[in-house]
Write a protein that binds this DNA or RNA. Structure first.
Lengths: 156, 156
DNA sequence: CTTAAAATCACCCTAAAGTATGAGGCTTTT
DNA sequence: AAAAGCCTCATACTTTAGGGTGATTTTAAG
């Protein structure tokens, strides 16, 4: 049924309309008493008029249905903010743990010597790691490895 | 008004209801003729009943009004998908157009020689550009320049 | 226990990257 | 017109990166 009558204005309008119609009918009754036994017609007119009134009121009071529409809002983040390692790609390239570690350090701009120092191994070790890394990733330079690594979500 | 009558079923129901009500009123009329001058009451009953009928019919036939409520859903994209150059940072670092160009090519893994070939200048020119670039960005290596450049949205 | 992969390191060599300095030509600004 | 900044190029030099080969030790898997 009709719930939540939003404003009293429409209720008032309805009441006034009803009164006016009743008065109109009353006036018609007094004026055309001649038409005896026109009761059915009279009732029919009332029925039609008030049906229309009911329809109008209902349409006025009918509260619109709320349909929630989800709109995708694009939010731009740096890739690092929510990085998840792509383990499928990692497995596909068969990168070892150490090689990935070296790649990560390369990506943040460290030199081979700095990587060696940080991992407590020799410079030569890092060179062999990087060589294997480039071979497995099929790249020629560390910058390409970094670019590809980011593209494949191997590094942030 | 009422548009788009969706099925004839409801129209039929309305018609039958109207007929039933009229018959009911007719029956009441025959049964309680004793109540003379109850015409106004009679009319009022008709009015109320048909108003209610009108309301019911209107609600049935009225296509539910749709009010779309927009809910924003956050979608996370990689920064590269829609890169916008950070011109404030670019101005702050005072990078020249050529230097930025070199940085961009570095970032995609090109060697100095490849950059030189692509820009139709000599290798020495690229070296000069890169040196100035590193100086302005306060970095030591191209990998650091790339990392910083991405962080500052100078490159995708 | 044996085998394979991974990690480590060394040596040598070449290629690439990066630094320093100087300089000429061009455009814009003062 | 002069100054400043940019682009260009060169030469010389140092440092770093990368390739190739070989070898030892650890570790993981069968």
């Amino acid at each position: 049924m009709i719930k939540n009558i939003r404003n009293y204005k429409q209720t008032l309008v309805y009441g006034i309309s009803l009164a006016v119609l009743l008065l109109l009918l009353r006036w018609l009754e007094l004026r055309y008493v001649i038409l005896a036994h026109s009761f059915e017609i009279y009732a029919g007119v009332i029925a039609v008029l008030f049906t229309a009134l009911g329809v109008w009121v209902a349409l006025k009071l009918n509260k619109p249905q709320v349909l929630t529409k989800v709109i995708e809002k694009e939010i731009y983040l740096t890739a690092a903010a929510n990085f998840v390692l792509n383990e499928q790609q990692l497995a596909k390239l068969k990168l070892s743990a150490r090689e990935l570690e070296v790649l990560q350090l390369m990506a943040v701009g460290k030199s081979n010597q700095e990587i060696a120092d940080q991992l407590f191994v020799s410079l030569n070790t890092i060179k062999t790691h990087s060589s294997r890394l480039f071979e497995k990733m099929d790249v020629k330079r560390r910058t390409q490895a970094i670019e590809l690594g980011k593209k494949l979500s191997l590094i942030p």
